[in-house]
Nucleic acid binder design. Structure first.
Lengths: 110, 110
DNA sequence: CAGGATCCTGTAGGATACTG
DNA sequence: CAGTATCCTACAGGATCCTG
């Protein structure tokens, strides 16, 4: 009754790679919540540094998770938005949030 | 239309923490697929070392994702199985696998 | 505002060998 | 079989300051 073959394991590890690390999911979450500007996103994620946010955004743009648009100013405006592709990850994130909440109760009731 | 509050962000980061890293999801996946023995799990995940598997299994046991049972031998047998709690993560993993497959196509068609 | 440049550190994770 | 014990290092990620 094996469900997953090596190919599926590969797909799983791909996903882990793409959304891995400490910040990518919170960033996706923030953008999906309507935050568009750099500082806005930054402020919505306590603890993140500009350096990390900058790096992650670039990577995520390369992976087509987000779209970056520059409005030539002045003032220059930059907006980030999640792609449809990224949004397809949204429900997974919601499930993870639910699970995280359960986890807290579960571990405490140890 | 904000969906997530800080508390939700916290839950998300909790989840990332618990199932984070390179190997925990593949391990969960392997065990959910019916692998029970240490070497069996090890062989099912190409690239993992005994050291990492050992460490991750311990952590996951502490977090009640898996249950470890020792059958006093000889030969001594050890079996790992996923808890119900862990299985509740199963559908999230399946979704991630699906997403990973799509990702491959999506990026290639760049 | 939107980042880039530097410098620094901890630790995740790999390699290898060994044990009961 | 089911792991421990060491040793090692690359890199994720933090702190701080700077630029157009």
């Amino acid at each position: 009754m094996k469900r997953n073959q090596p190919e599926e394991l590969q797909a799983l590890q791909d996903t882990i790679y793409v959304i891995g690390g400490k910040w990518k999911l919170p960033i996706i979450n923030s953008i999906c919540n309507g935050n568009k500007r750099f500082r806005e996103i930054e402020r919505s994620i306590p603890g993140i540094t500009t350096r990390m946010l900058s790096r992650e955004l670039k990577e995520m743009e390369m992976n087509k998770l987000i779209k970056r648009t520059v409005y030539a100013g002045p003032p220059v405006l930059v907006e980030y938005e999640s792609t449809e592709y990224c949004k397809s990850f949204g429900k997974i994130i919601l499930a993870m949030i639910q699970w995280g909440k359960e986890h807290r109760k579960y571990i405490k009731s140890a």
